[in-house]
Design a protein around this nucleic acid. Sequence first.
DNA 1: CATAAATTACCTACTAGATGATAGTTTTAA
DNA 2: TTAAAACTATCATCTAGTAGGTAATTTATG
Lengths: 193, 193
Amino acid sequence: MMRGMRTNTQDEILNAAQALAQQRGFNAFSYADISAAIGIRKASIHYHFPSKEDLELALLLRYVEQFDEALLAIDQSADPPALKLRRYGELYRRTLSLGAICLCGMMASDIAALPAMLRAPLAEFFVTQTNWLGGVLEAGRRNGEFVFAGDSVLRARSVLASLQGGLIVARALQDAALFDALVDDLLAGIGHR
Amino acid sequence: MMRGMRTNTQDEILNAAQALAQQRGFNAFSYADISAAIGIRKASIHYHFPSKEDLELALLLRYVEQFDEALLAIDQSADPPALKLRRYGELYRRTLSLGAICLCGMMASDIAALPAMLRAPLAEFFVTQTNWLGGVLEAGRRNGEFVFAGDSVLRARSVLASLQGGLIVARALQDAALFDALVDDLLAGIGHR
DNA sequence: CATAAATTACCTACTAGATGATAGTTTTAA
DNA sequence: TTAAAACTATCATCTAGTAGGTAATTTATG
């Protein structure tokens, strides 16, 4: 199997681990739970990911890769900035539908328990989101779709915080419609008055 | 010891548990960690909190009680709404200074691993915050300090989401100043233009 | 093309340590 | 003296992880 490529089993393991991690946190499940979910033995999971830290790192890198692809897909569309922003919000909304939150949001919550080697790629995820959002906000401001004062990076970070926090609030209140209303409010807040 | 009153040892246990829970999540520490932190044996912790679920419930109820007291203190001051809001943001900022996030935000992140009996009081925390913030926002709108369209409950929920998410983003990027900037932006966004 | 060797991907069995919890005892405080 | 609060000792279960084995697949060789 070529270096760097993942096998189907590895993706199954990562899918199961991601669901568990996004729903209950990375320290609230074990290899036994993954074994039960996908039907291979614990030792087989160790064969693919020798330590739980290996698994967690692989999970983060895959998530970042998938998120980057999603950003690229939005970028490459001819959608206007407001629609791009809404599609971006949809990425978060989708995790809510799975009874979960953003994997990186979860890892950031538990950061004191995160292996040191994951902190840099995790921080980079948030930098990437901020920069991407900043670009969308600037493009919207230029074409008149968005109106906001000040630094677009600051505003981008606020948008990102709102989305991450919106998942938490909607999760606590067990009502995804709250997240939808929040996204509408977010867009209304920077749209034309 | 009178029913419902906590002993000093119980508060020490809860203080240690709260710090650990807010830093790394409730499932990433054990009674052994609390024992190491406060210098009594695991069995003594069990004496006060027979199960870890008992501990988690006591933790949540105490946190809610302390937060309610903080809201009451802000309410009873003669501060104008904008200052009340800033003081409210300070409550979150303080947890960041401790290398932690809001206990309820953390519990909401990990909600799939939360004992069922905690879900109602957790949801209630978020309802209480939303209602309180809604009241402050309405008062500000009435006295001209705040300008925002639409439902104050919706805006309150957005503010709450921003604060919770701001902790996450600042945590991931290991920079509390980002949270400060976000709060300033939040206030600027509803203040007079 | 057939066979042997190497590799992969799983398995069983097992381990050491940690964890949440309990029972009985001792010490401390009231 | 009694009750509370700590303790020691112990337990069952779980967890992350390892070693060695096996079957299937792939690669190398004659």
